[in-house]
Write a protein that binds this DNA or RNA. Structure first.
Lengths: 209, 209
DNA sequence: ACTCAAGTGGACGGGGGTGTCCGCTACGGT
DNA sequence: ACCGTAGCGGACACCCCCGTCCACTTGAGT
């Protein structure tokens, strides 16, 4: 059990980390977070021995939110509506949290939740895609890897200036969904990216941290 | 006039910079470039007093290529084919040159070419869009700012691992074009991003360098 | 009130990045 | 072949960030 002052400091650090990470990305100096929290560096390091640990905890909320979005979409009886809310929701999170995808992708192996969530979410999304295709709403040549592709390029949204991020996210997801929608005028696509785990791990050079 | 050895060193530095920048992005250490070129840091700094100057020159070729792509597209009698080649071409450049868009956007004010090229290209693209819309090929609610949006999220392509970049670029541009194509099933879009110069300058936090 | 361990922040050493200085090297005109 | 000078690269000073250590402070149990 933490002493009361220690607990409060820990909370303040997490708050500062959340706001700084989502505003400036993952490469904020640790000291800056400590300063914002009104705490010395040592205090921060004692609670979060490594930057990765801090990141994991700072983004835990968003990971939960992510999973929630996907689960709801998966449970939706209309698979296309599900797809839409997934794409919209992830774009929104991307826009509001600079570096969230990076955090999500580079989550440390011991943050078991992350890996489990990732796998789980991908499974649900895959099923969603299958159902949406079967319903004739999703273009038949769409593959799960395309979803990753969309997610990865969506990272660019978080780089948009704060005042246009939400607009950009909404516009982006609407355009993306139009691309994904089954449509009579749809052209044949070039071959999809095969997103193996290795490919995924190396997206972004694996060095956002 | 440069002495012959100096000239050769300068060329080697530029070559090294090009290959390192496109492979690892703009945050390659200057020393690394010097090392790769087989010269001392001082030599590099004498020819290119600031990192920005080096970046400007290293990417000059791609800027030219960019302009060329747009000019050809602009000259194309079929505006939609023009749009396609622009989107394809830019995605390709993005995929092959990590950090190219960053370089393009953050080009120093004195690298006049950049600003001029940007403005010029945007003008041509705007006209292309108008013609494509008029021909009924481009969705009517598309605005020029959407083009910037696509360009900006396309940055994410350069972060893909080298072995999938071209595939990713091709797939991405094909999907994007499907989103831009006028189509009977197209949904109404949310409001577009208003990409003012300030917005543009702040995209990416203005700090890729 | 007293005590003492948990908690704290300033200070330190290490690493890596940038840009600059200076004594040596070697190109190229004579 | 010689020599003046442009050119060179190693060494330097500076800054920022990371992670750790240690003497001091303070919460909370008695």
């Amino acid at each position: 059990m933490l002493r009361s002052d220690a607990q409060e400091n820990r909370d303040r650090v997490l708050d500062a980390a959340r706001s700084l990470f989502s505003e400036h990305g993952l490469d904020v100096p640790i000291r800056e977070i400590a300063r914002r929290a009104g705490v010395g560096p040592a205090t921060l390091y004692r609670r979060f021995p490594t930057k990765q640990a801090l990141i994991d905890l700072a983004f835990a909320r968003e990971v939960k939110q992510c999973r929630e979005i996907v689960r709801n979409a998966w449970a939706d009886e209309d698979p296309w509506r599900g797809m839409c809310s997934v794409v919209n929701g992830l774009a929104e999170i991307n826009a509001q949290n600079q570096g969230f995808v990076d955090a999500f992708m580079t989550a440390s192996p011991d943050a078991i939740d992350f890996a489990a969530h990732r796998a789980d979410m991908l499974r649900m999304i895959a099923e969603l895609c299958r159902r949406a295709k079967h319903a004739g709403a999703l273009r038949p040549d769409f593959v799960l890897d395309d979803f990753i592709l969309v997610l990865m390029v969506g990272r660019g949204l978080s780089a948009a200036p704060p005042d246009v991020r939400r607009t950009a996210a909404r516009r982006f997801s609407a355009l993306t969904l139009d691309a994904l929608r089954a449509s009579p005028t749809t052209a044949t696509l070039p071959p999809p990216v095969r997103v193996t785990p290795a490919v995924l791990a190396n997206w972004g050079g694996g060095r956002p941290i």
